[in-house]
Design a protein around this nucleic acid. Structure first.
Length: 583
RNA sequence: GGGCACGUAGCUCAGCCAGGAUAGAGCGUCGGACUUCUAAUCCGAUGGUCAUGGGUUCGAAUCCCAUCGUGCUCGCCA
């Protein structure tokens, strides 16, 4: 409804301004503050004042006179308030919203007919997923959800680095060291916790080991990389043995969020199918290609990038970025839109990638990057797999679920809702709430802001958290549980201001989806859920549903609660936060 | 040092990209509301030179420039 109303207002206002001989390039459409009854307003009078030679309020009146509410869909009246022209919603606006909200998939936009691939996480398979890395799957999953809901045919990809130096080091360490060489026990009984010890041991050895042994190790690592480059299946199998094991453990961890993928795309695939070689040949032909210090590079200074991009090492092996170019051309062939979610430490590389893809003749408007800032530990500490610093995501999720379970159990005694929870229910709710809280905490912040991870804050179940919003969903379910089905209703029976406020908030949801998909910013869905929860709670306080005596009012309120449930369930779904039926 | 971000209440954050109606929340502190559709809730009070200084504008938290502080980055790593 909101989207329809907005375009209707835009069109009508542009027509009116044209009729009055005013410019129509800036309509000044905005959403007024809460205490104003209008759904939309225009501040265009400010801009026209000097041209009109009249004060803004007078111009606003003139503009309002030139408009006819009857001609604008979903607008009941046009008023002025000082310099503002306000557009008030009609009964049909409320009625239409209440009807639309009955659909389970309320908020889903029409199919765009376009496909999109969202690549996210893509962490090197070196060890357990830590909290610093967790922003990527959580944001990435939400971005994919939003695009899907906004009408795209979405695939989720994890790009697996199985051909870089890191994996060569890992493979060498895995083959070279024995269990007894390793320090300590695995922190958890899962494969990546076991194997990461080889990786750490290997890196420590390369740093501090005896010179001659380090040299021999480097030769072995070199041989692995050369083997991969040459398409040697045996070498590939050796590396794959490590990669697949570590990755399987990481996938289990990510599945807890949950973050699932349609495809794990291995970069070695672009070496073995010849596309990397082909790409290198084409890169050499570019005007920007230079051969310096025995390595092939691209001089991108004409394109505003100071740093040269090496695409072929002096030993003739390719680099991550080289293979990533081939990877992206593959994406372009298969998808209309390619979105990559990555940390700010990869920003320069992403710019090089995009510029180079452009030079190679690709349409890089297909490519969009979602870049997020760091997650730090208090005291400015970073998180590193190699050094073993950082908080494991598994530990965070365990703690979150434990604390949530404690909360549920603490509340069991003075529960009023009579839906006898079993132990299984309690466990289920604890998972929904605990993991939801972690996701929400991370997703509700702007991507550009650095996050400092603090246990207590991430697991605060008070307001502005997932449980606060989830509780609203549980409340809607609590009410709807008491009715068999939504009765026939008439929106005009809703007379309370709180009901209208809630309907207006529900009406905005599709616009939130649209804006979030356009900007690739899931955090504003989180902001919306919070506003929604506040609006719903006001309705809940002031407008009893089940105990309402007037059957028409009761029916309309039941329908409103159903619309609210669909809206908040879908909004939470976009965030990947579970929507509990009871809490 | 160069490039790119970030700096809003004691703390954690919305609002900024598309400049406009008294700058919004939560936590904290203080005071209220459960025989009621679940109090993981709600209501009230408290609290802000929107880092600083300029500029553009009728109007700047929002756009531009400079300064300060913080983070990321500047590998034949990824």
């Amino acid at each position: 409804m909101f989207l329809t109303l907005r375009s209707a207002v835009e069109e009508a206002l542009a027509d009116a301004l044209a009729t009055l001989d005013y410019p129509t390039d800036d309509l000044g459409i905005e959403e007024p503050p809460e205490d104003v009854d209008a759904v939309l307003a225009s501040s265009v009078a400010f801009r026209l004042a000097s041209e009109a030679g009249a004060p803004p309020p007078q111009v606003a009146a003139e503009v309002a006179d030139a408009l006819d509410a009857d001609d604008i869909e979903y607008v009941a009246a046009i008023t002025t308030q000082g310099p503002y022209v306000n557009f008030l919603p009609s009964d049909a606006y409320y009625a239409g919203t209440l009807d639309a909200g009955q659909a389970d998939d309320y908020g889903r936009l029409e199919d765009t007919g376009e496909s999109a691939v969202v690549e996210h996480t893509s962490a090197n398979p070196t060890g357990p997923v830590h909290v610093g890395r967790a922003r990527n799957p959580i944001v990435g999953d939400a971005v994919a959800n939003v695009l899907d809901f906004a009408g795209y045919d979405v695939d989720r990809h994890y790009y697996v680095n199985d051909a870089g130096r890191q994996m060569a080091v890992f493979t060498w360490a895995y083959e070279h060291f024995d269990e007894e060489d390793l320090e300590g026990e695995p922190e958890r009984d899962r494969i990546e916790y076991d194997l990461v010890r080889y990786y750490r041991k290997g890196n420590a050895f390369l740093e501090d080991g005896p010179a001659d042994e380090v040299e021999a190790a480097e030769a072995e690592i070199q041989a692995i990389m050369q083997g991969l480059e040459a398409g040697d299946e045996d070498v590939h199998d050796r590396v794959t043995e490590v990669v697949d094991q570590v990755l399987s453990g990481m996938r289990e961890c990510l599945a807890r969020l949950p973050a699932e993928f349609d495809e794990f795309v291995k970069e070695s695939r672009f070496m073995f199918d010849g596309s990397t070689d082909d790409l290198v040949a084409r890169l050499k032909e570019l005007d920007e290609a230079v051969y310096e210090e025995d390595a092939w590079q691209l001089d991108l200074t004409p394109h505003g990038i100071e740093k040269n991009m090496v695409f072929l090492r002096s030993d003739d092996t390719s680099l991550y970025t080289t293979r990533d170019l081939a990877h992206h051309e593959w994406k372009f062939e298969n998808y209309d839109r390619a979105v990559t979610v990555l940390g700010e430490d990869h920003k320069l590389q992403a710019e090089q990638l995009q510029t180079t893809l452009d030079l190679l003749g690709n349409d890089t408007s297909q490519l969009e990057n979602v870049i997020f800032s760091w997650v730090n530990l208090p005291g400015g500490l970073g998180m590193s797999t190699r050094e073993g610093t950082g908080v494991d995501l598994d530990d965070l999720l365990d703690e979150a679920v434990d604390r949530a379970r404690q909360e549920v159990e603490d509340r069991m005694e003075d529960r009023i809702r009579d839906d006898d929870l079993t132990d299984e229910d309690v466990d289920h709710i604890a998972h929904q709430v605990g993991i939801g809280a972690v996701r929400y905490d991370i997703i509700s912040k702007q991507l550009t802001k650095t996050i400092t991870f603090e246990w207590d804050r991430a697991l605060d179940f008070e307001a502005q958290s997932a449980p606060y919003v989830q509780y609203v969903h549980a409340r809607t379910c609590g009410i709807l549980d008491e009715v068999d089905e939504v009765p026939a209703f008439d929106a005009s029976a809703l007379e309370r201001e709180e009901a209208h406020d809630l309907l207006r908030t529900i009406a905005r949801f599709p616009a939130v989806v649209e804006a979030s998909a356009d900007a690739l910013e899931p955090h504003n869905v989180a902001t919306y859920t919070r506003e929604f929860a506040e609006t719903f709670n006001a309705f809940y306080r002031e407008c009893p549903v089940l105990s309402e005596d007037d059957p028409e009012v009761r029916a309309a309120r039941v329908a409103l609660v159903a619309a609210a449930r669909n809206t908040i369930a879908n909004a939470l779904g976009l965030l990947g936060v579970a929507a509990p039926d009871s809490m």
